[in-house]
């Protein structure tokens, strides 16, 4: 009897884990097919998109194939992320740990933080033009904000008792910060890293859509302006796949960096 119950339950689990997600994807593909067949001028069908994908390799856009465009976008994000992680985490720690820093930097930050990264586009372009630096700068702004917020919140939320433990066991202020407070806040910092990556991936595309030769955002604009919907779809699907892959890798990285969070 017990076994039967368990079997039934595992059947349901299996359906929830595999059945429903597959069904959801089929639904999207089905909707796409239906839309493409009833409006062939607005929406290319999957086969046409596949053919367009092949053509991005045989006849590269702006002399660069799809991988080249993907790497151009990824490179910008990565460069911005490296700076954002270092500066954002350090600033977040300062704001969370020191009341003076919170009063000064925290206040400035509270003013800047509600501005969406895309709103910086005109400002950054007017100040720095449309070269590589302004794009990276835009991504930096978009990634740096969630990092500071999450890091500062994580540091601020560390239970006072953990700090008391540090004091009782003879830690000085720096030891308590480095060996107790920061590790305790690490899961929050990681949440910030995750948000920063997805935000960076969004911002780079927006920046590229406005002014870029290479990059997935440039592909979207190119397709859009040339009424080449299939190219837009190729770029959009690539964006989705890379975005999902980034999220997945970050989850793995987090499990490796914070093994205590099950």
């Amino acid at each position: 009897m017990m076994n039967l119950e368990e079997k039934k339950k595992s059947g349901l689990e299996l359906f929830l884990y595999w059945g429903l997600p597959i069904l959801a994807i089929l639904l999207v593909v089905g909707g796409w097919l239906w839309f493409a067949i009833s409006n062939p001028r607005l929406m290319p069908n999957p086969l046409q998109v596949y053919e367009r994908l092949i053509r991005t390799f045989t006849r590269p856009v702006a002399k660069v194939n799809l991988f080249g465009h993907a790497f151009a976008s990824l490179g910008r994000v990565l460069m911005a992320l490296v700076f954002a992680w270092v500066i954002g985490i350090v600033l977040g720690i300062l704001i969370g740990w020191s009341r003076v820093c919170k009063a000064v930097i925290g206040t400035i930050f509270e003013i800047i933080r509600p501005i969406p990264p895309i709103a910086w586009i005109p400002i950054v372009i007017m100040w720095f033009g449309i070269e590589e630096f302004p794009k990276v700068l835009l991504v930096f702004i978009g990634t740096f904000v969630p990092l500071v917020i999450n890091t500062a919140a994580g540091i601020g939320l560390v239970d006072k008792i953990n700090i008391d433990v540090g004091k009782i066991f003879g830690g000085n202020r720096f030891q308590i910060l480095a060996q107790i407070v920061i590790p305790t806040a690490l899961p929050s910092i990681f949440a910030g890293i995750r948000t920063s990556v997805s935000s960076g991936w969004t911002t780079v595309l927006a920046a590229e859509m406005i002014a870029a030769q290479h990059g997935l955002g440039a592909l979207v604009t190119r397709g859009w302006q040339g009424s080449d919907m299939a190219l837009v779809m190729v770029a959009v699907i690539t964006i989705a796949i890379i975005g999902a892959f980034l999220a997945f890798s970050l989850n793995k990285l987090e499990k490796w960096v914070c093994p205590w969070t099950k």
Binding site: D159, I161, N162, D164, V165, I180, P183, T184, L186, C258, W260
Partner: peptide, 9 residues
């Protein structure tokens, strides 16, 4: 400590 306060990490 009453609340244990072990370092989870």
């Amino acid at each position: 400590f009453q609340k244990l306060a072990l370092m989870s990490f």
